[in-house]
Design a protein around this nucleic acid. Structure first.
Length: 419
RNA sequence: GUGAUCAUAGCUUAAUGGUAAAGCUCCGCUCUGUGGAAGCGGCGAUACGGGUUCAAUUCCCGUUGGUCACCCCA
């Protein structure tokens, strides 16, 4: 876990602002579920067999003996909130969005942290209309686009439903069985994949090992095994995207790690960094069943804020702070020091930013500080000015300075900053 | 969770089984009413715990943390 330092904060503000703007345009309403929930929610919702729950859930017992967990993702909380607050009686579907920290207890490495921020959009309820899948994908894409990140690719796939996925799974296993247990020299897939075939065959397609890359070229793809309704749903998604000439790439090998996805799955990646997804999501109609309810049609996306910021930083290493509208106040002597303290208050109602180094006493060190701050003007008040009720207005760029009545100084600074 | 690798000042790096060095940054002085330069000075470190040893920052073990890969994921 790490600090978000003042130097990085501008990036965070930029991302959050862009997210709010995009979410607002597509009519998503913010929701802020608790960071801590009953562990049960994620164990059932996210899925007992997922790594997120098996290995990465931060859980502990409260004094009241409840088993609670720091949220590893938002989606189960949103479904919980939807059910708990009777949102099925609101106009359907309900569109909600979120921005906040999530926690996963896994080894940190490039682009991965134990506490990280997710922004996300979810459409819950109503019909399982492919237009919602499309809208989720488009809004997530527009958000990233809003940040001027270019070269982003949307990878899209459908992994079917309960009716058709088992059939595909079987086909895939049959295909790979031929390559399993070969001798070392003839090996066509990596060791990990030998294991995967049995446990989670869909994941084999995700493997980055060179050996497996070749083998998977001829592997059966899920799209060929979709049932009729899944096929027409996916076709629907593509048609909506095509309608607005939205760029996407069909990625028949894309599968996602969470149990609850069905039909549409997608990832958004930056082309420079193909192994690191900026966002991922899909349809998750079955998730509500873990609450003992019948399936609720839902689709959503979550975006990795740190990863987006990482890309942002590589694009424009420095976010320039506005150098305009900055004024530095300098004092010489105790009397003047009090006056400057009062003067700061007078500037409060303007948009002018006041900088100072009131703890320093020498003129030199204060001017040095002003120099570093790159303010346009410095206002200097000393003993002489204190008694004269005046103040020195110094232009930091050319060093020119003049004396102004202290009563007029706020107006005078305003006027000059305008020019 | 598995494997590899690393850990010296705020940052970047040096060195040694026996006083830990430098550059940058920061603070101050040269310059008690005037900034950017220069010179001088100052603050500041061997991650933590144990072992071997007269002596450990150095060698050994463990822990923690970072990095990388795997697993998995945002």
């Amino acid at each position: 876990m790490r600090d978000i330092l003042p130097a990085d904060y501008p990036y965070w503000e930029k991302v959050e602002k862009a997210f709010k703007k995009t979410a607002e345009f597509y009519n998503f309403k913010f929701i802020e579920p608790p960071i801590l929930e009953r562990a049960e929610l994620f164990i059932r919702g996210t899925g007992v067999n997922t790594d997120i729950v098996e290995k990465e859930l931060y859980t502990f017992k409260t004094k009241g003996k409840d088993l609670v967990a720091l949220r590893p993702e938002f989606t189960p909380s949103l479904i919980r909130a939807y059910i708990e607050h009777g949102m099925s009686r609101l106009p359907q579907p309900v569109k909600m969005c979120y921005f906040g920290p999530v926690f996963r207890y896994s080894a940190p490495q490039a682009g991965r942290f134990r506490q990280f921020y997710q922004a996300g959009l979810e459409i819950i309820g109503g019909e399982a209309d492919p237009i919602y899948d499309a809208q989720i994908i488009v809004s997530a894409f527009r958000f990233i686009e809003e940040l001027k990140i270019k070269k982003i690719i949307v990878q899209l796939n459908s992994i079917g439903c309960r009716a058709c996925r088992p059939g595909y799974r079987k086909k895939l296993q049959e295909y790979y069985r031929r390559y399993a247990s070969l001798t070392k020299t003839k090996r066509k897939i990596c060791k990990d994949c030998e294991r995967r075939i049995k446990i989670n065959p869909l994941r084999v397609l995700d493997c980055k090992n060179e050996l497996c890359q070749q083998t998977k070229e001829n592997a059966p793809v899920s799209l060929d095994y979709l049932c009729l309704s899944c096929r027409s749903h996916f076709k629907g998604v593509l048609e909506f995207l095509d309608e607005i000439s939205f760029p996407y790439v069909l990625s028949p090998h894309l599968v996602r790690g969470l149990d609850y996805y069905n039909r549409t799955v997608f990832e958004i990646i930056e082309s420079g960094n193909p192994s690191l997804a900026l966002a991922g999501g899909g349809r998750y109609d079955y998730l509500a069943e873990s609450f003992g309810k019948r399936a609720i049609p839902s689709a959503g996306v979550s975006l990795g804020v740190e990863r987006i910021i990482e890309v942002l930083k590589s694009l424009s290493p420095i976010i320039l702070e506005k150098t305009k509208d900055k004024v530095f106040i300098i004092h010489a002597g105790e009397l003047a020091k009090k006056k400057t303290f009062a003067l700061i208050e007078e500037f409060r109602k303007t948009n002018i930013k006041i900088f100072e180094a009131l703890g320093k006493e020498s003129l030199e060190s204060q001017l040095k500080a002003a120099d570093r701050e790159e303010t346009k003007f410095a206002l200097i008040i000393g003993q002489k000015e204190f008694y004269e009720e005046s103040i020195i207005l110094k232009d930091m760029e050319n060093g020119v300075q003049e004396t102004v009545s202290i009563k007029k100084i706020v107006e005078e600074v305003k006027k000059r900053l305008k020019d």
